[in-house]
Amino acid sequence: MNATVRVDNVSKRYGRVEAVADVCFDLGEGEMVALIGHNGAGKTTLMKLMLGLIRPTHGSIVVLGDNPAAGQFAGRRHLGYLPENVSFDAALTGRETQTFYARLKREPVAKALQLLDTVGLGAAASRRVGTYSKGMRQRLGLAQALIGRPRVLLLDEPTTGLDPELRQTFYGVIQRLAAEGTTVLLSSHALTELEERAARVIIMNRGIKVADGSVESLRSIARLPTKIRLKVANLAPGEVPSWLPASTACRRLNGHIVEIDAAPEQKIELLRCATAAGTALEDFDVVPPNLDELYAHFLHKAEGMP
């Protein structure tokens, strides 16, 4: 896999504040990577460094073979960027705004205007941006970020203000781009959305990278318990199945549902016990640690908390 972005021991200081500290990672062609962390963790700073809007205090960044901090950054034409807070000239129409950015990137205007339909703004293209709602302005920001089929797409809170249907449309578009080789870096607090779609997660805390890997690999490292939920017939209130080992943490949720906290290596054995004991199972679910739980785990670990 070819790296389109290389971040090598990068630090960025603002006076006494170190926004990013010795961060290293590569982003490959066709990767969809989630960059997550609390406000002030360094996510937006990293994106601005990749764009060449700011320069690193130490270390180096290479994007599409160029150094963004060098001034002459030919690869910028092949970048798409959506900032967290989009801002456009309120006097221009959506069509005029998209035309402006297409010409700025030297891309065909007709193709850029088609993106307004992609993001659901076709019917509002002739309206002035000043009349747009927050969600509509966000959609216009997505349309400009997608101009020219970018090779690297940097998206900072891209689905803010979008309704569920348009969120699905948006993720469909960027998943197709990733399948065709575009590198996508997504920063968002909507961790449930990212868990379902990102092949890799980078977790930042106070400017430091504290975890990097697929959700499955992060689960393996964190070793958080998996929840096994069994719907068991004929259990009295407060009763738990007799076949459960005495040391197993479990609780009754409601009615016939028993929830068990299982270590990763216990899952299969507990399910074997449940079926071998002749338990009247009506249903079961296996719920692995989600991205919210993994995120909290790695942040607590970074802070030295239990």
Results as ranks from 00 to 15, higher is better:
41 A>T: 06
20 V>I: 05
27 L>Q: 10
17 V>N: 10
30 G>K: 00
36 I>E: 02
31 E>R: 02
43 K>M: 08
25 F>T: 01
29 E>C: 07
25 F>E: 02
20 V>R: 12
18 E>C: 13
37 G>F: 04
17 V>C: 09
18 E>A: 11
44 T>Q: 02
15 G>K: 00
32 M>W: 05
44 T>S: 15
17 V>L: 13
28 G>P: 07
17 V>R: 09
24 C>F: 13
44 T>G: 10
30 G>T: 07
32 M>L: 15
20 V>T: 14
31 E>G: 00
39 N>P: 05
37 G>N: 01
16 R>Q: 13
18 E>S: 14
23 V>H: 12
34 A>H: 02
38 H>A: 15
40 G>Q: 04
32 M>V: 15
15 G>C: 05
30 G>E: 00
19 A>P: 02
41 A>W: 07
33 V>H: 04
29 E>Q: 15
38 H>G: 07
42 G>C: 04
19 A>K: 05
34 A>S: 09
26 D>V: 01
17 V>M: 12
17 V>P: 03
43 K>V: 14
19 A>I: 07
33 V>K: 11
36 I>Q: 03
28 G>W: 10
28 G>H: 15
26 D>Y: 01
37 G>S: 09
37 G>L: 03
41 A>Q: 03
23 V>L: 10
23 V>S: 09
33 V>N: 02
44 T>P: 04
22 D>F: 06
41 A>N: 08
22 D>T: 07
17 V>E: 14
36 I>W: 04
28 G>A: 15
28 G>F: 14
41 A>M: 08
26 D>G: 08
40 G>D: 05
29 E>R: 14
33 V>T: 13
20 V>H: 02
15 G>V: 11
27 L>I: 13
29 E>D: 15
33 V>L: 06
43 K>G: 14
19 A>L: 09
21 A>V: 12
32 M>C: 13
28 G>D: 12
21 A>I: 05
18 E>V: 14
19 A>N: 04
44 T>L: 07
39 N>F: 06
34 A>M: 03
23 V>K: 06
33 V>C: 15
42 G>P: 01
34 A>L: 13
29 E>N: 12
22 D>K: 11
20 V>K: 06
39 N>K: 09
16 R>S: 12
45 T>Q: 06
15 G>N: 12
18 E>W: 08
39 N>Q: 09
42 G>I: 02
44 T>K: 06
29 E>W: 07
17 V>G: 10
27 L>V: 15
15 G>P: 06
40 G>W: 09
18 E>P: 01
21 A>Y: 11
45 T>C: 05
29 E>Y: 03
39 N>V: 13
43 K>N: 03
44 T>Y: 09
17 V>I: 10
33 V>M: 04
38 H>C: 06
19 A>T: 09
30 G>R: 00
25 F>P: 01
18 E>F: 00
29 E>F: 02
26 D>A: 10
27 L>R: 07
16 R>C: 07
45 T>F: 08
25 F>L: 12
32 M>K: 11
